[in-house]
Computed example of a mutant assay.
Amino acid sequence: MDSKLTSRLDLLADNTLSIIFERNKLKDLKLNYEKYEATINKNLAKLKEGIKTLEQQLSAEEETGATNTNDDEDKLVQIQVKLNKLEVLLGGDEASARDILLGNKRGKTVRFSSPHMEVDPSDLENGQILQLQQRVIQDQDDDLDQLSLVIGRHRELGLLIGDELESHAQLIDETEIMVDRTDARLRKAKKKLDYVGRKVKDNSK
């Protein structure tokens, strides 16, 4: 089986996974996500075509009597598992995709061209599935980190708003004091004017 094609498909699946995550985030935020659709569909088509090619190659190897094909079978199934996740994620159901990876939900069965060969991804126990599980956990950790940053920013903003409100309250208090002082001065000035006015009247008599 073509190891270079296997590696390319594996990398393509990982790259497409990142694109779909970004696309889904934009969709949740009701932003323009359609710019990713063409790339995603093109990548999925390449993955399906590549998987078909690998199946044919593996079947040909078995027909020639090859017996050491277990590793190739595992690699092919791993790519199929990734494709299953991508298709589920593309539908927006991230929880179902994670269930498939964690073995809580049975994904699509991978069939090869040779008879009686059927492998279910949920029955696999290997390093690649563990890596995929770790990727899901890492995605969750990244989301929590982003949430923590947002909460931290909101807290800082709240503190700034609190400081601003406190400053405004001090300004209001100072303004009230100045108004009271000005009012007192005006009253005192009015009394003086009244006194002067009475004196003028008395002198004019």
Rank of each mutant, 00 (worst) to 15 (best):
E49S: 09
E63L: 15
S3D: 09
I40W: 01
D14Q: 10
L171C: 08
G107I: 06
L130A: 14
I79Q: 02
Q140F: 11
S7P: 07
N84E: 03
K4T: 12
Q140D: 09
D194G: 00
E125M: 06
G50Q: 03
E49P: 11
E61S: 01
K48Q: 08
N84R: 03
I137C: 05
Q134F: 06
D72A: 13
R198Y: 12
S3I: 12
S114G: 12
K42D: 09
G152Q: 04
K190N: 02
D99N: 15
K35I: 04
F21D: 00
I79P: 00
L101S: 04
V88D: 03
I40M: 02
Q170F: 14
Q78C: 05
E125W: 04
F21P: 00
L193C: 10
Q170I: 13
Q56E: 08
N70M: 14
K30S: 15
T67F: 08
T69C: 10
R23T: 09
I40F: 03
D71I: 08
K48G: 01
V88T: 04
I20T: 08
E73Y: 09
D14A: 12
I19Q: 06
L83M: 14
N68Q: 11
G152Y: 05
K52C: 05
V150E: 07
S59R: 07
L147K: 12
G127W: 06
R111G: 05
V196I: 10
L86A: 04
P121C: 04
E125Q: 05
L90K: 01
D72R: 14
F112A: 01
V150Y: 09
G103C: 05
K191Q: 15
K85E: 01
E22H: 10
L130Q: 11
L165K: 13
K105Y: 09
N43R: 00
I129V: 07
K25I: 03
